[in-house]
Amino acid sequence: MHMVPVNTFPPSVILYGGTGQAKIARPIIEQYGARVVAVFDDTPGLPSPFPGTPIYPGAELPNWLAQQGGAEIGFSVTIGNPHGRARLAIHDRLKGLGLVPVSFAHPTAFIDESAVIGEGAQISAGAIVLAEARLGRCCIINTKASVDHEDVLEDGAEVAPGATLCGLVRLGQAAWVCAGATVLPRLTIGADAIVGAGAVVTRDIPDGATAVGVPARPITKSERNPK
């Protein structure tokens, strides 16, 4: 992980992902003087989330870029979880095409000066990132979510609205802590794991598990897909 500039944008930015996360991102980006010039998405027939802003299939991005005359263009992958792995893959592909990854935070978010914010971070209104927290690439900290001291979020992790990570918590790659959940101090949420909405995590959650309840417990495959 390494610190990248937050709220520093090229004049033009594209969003990859055309639903709710894009609607959160654009006002923040444009408040700092950049302009969202296009949206890309892999969903057939998806309308643009913004009147007057074109939306294109993702496959058309290389041709679109070729028409931009070499201008510096920023990007944000506005796709929420449980698609953290997809967000990372798209981020790397767009960066490989020469686009500039941006990290942004809403003006009402608080980020401690000792926190490390990774490439492609998205930090929403009222979110808190405290002392010596470390966010990897493409992490999302949603509305009023709290990331406490010395937490480590690996690449692609997401903390949903109103969720709380107490101090010294680690989220593995593409882990997702859902709305209103709480993770107690010094615990680890494994890679690709999901903590259900409102859960209280009192012990480590293994890779790939879905944990729900108070206290949270991993649920079985049959419980996730009841007949």
Rank of each mutant, 00 (worst) to 15 (best):
T164E: 12
I141C: 03
G136H: 02
E150N: 15
T143N: 05
S146Y: 09
G136R: 11
G167M: 12
A163H: 06
I141A: 00
I140D: 01
E158M: 05
G162H: 08
A163Y: 04
H149W: 06
T164K: 03
R137G: 08
A145E: 00
D148Q: 12
A145V: 02
D151Y: 12
T143D: 06
V152E: 13
V152F: 08
L153Y: 06
A160F: 00
N142H: 05
V152C: 15
L135H: 15
L153H: 05
G167C: 13
D148G: 12
A163W: 04
A160K: 00
D148W: 10
V147Y: 10
D155N: 13
T164C: 13
N142Y: 01
V159C: 06
T143L: 11
N142K: 02
E158R: 01
V147T: 12
L135Y: 12
A145F: 01
V159H: 06
P161T: 04
G156Q: 09
G167N: 11
V159A: 04
G162V: 02
C139Y: 10
L165K: 05
G136V: 14
N142A: 06
V159D: 04
D155Q: 11
D148M: 13
H149S: 09
C166V: 05
V147Q: 08
T164D: 04
E158H: 14
T143V: 13
A160W: 01
D155G: 14
E154S: 08
R137E: 06
C138Y: 12
E154M: 07
L165E: 08
V159M: 02
L135W: 09
K144F: 04
C138G: 15
L135R: 08
A157V: 08
D148S: 13
D155L: 10
V152I: 15
E154R: 04
G162F: 02
V152D: 13
I140Y: 00
L165N: 08
P161Q: 11
C138N: 15
L153A: 04
K144Y: 03
G162I: 00
N142I: 02
R137W: 15
C166M: 10
E154N: 11
G136C: 13
V159W: 00
A160Y: 00
S146E: 08
C139V: 15
A145C: 06
A160D: 03
L165C: 13
A157I: 11
D148C: 14
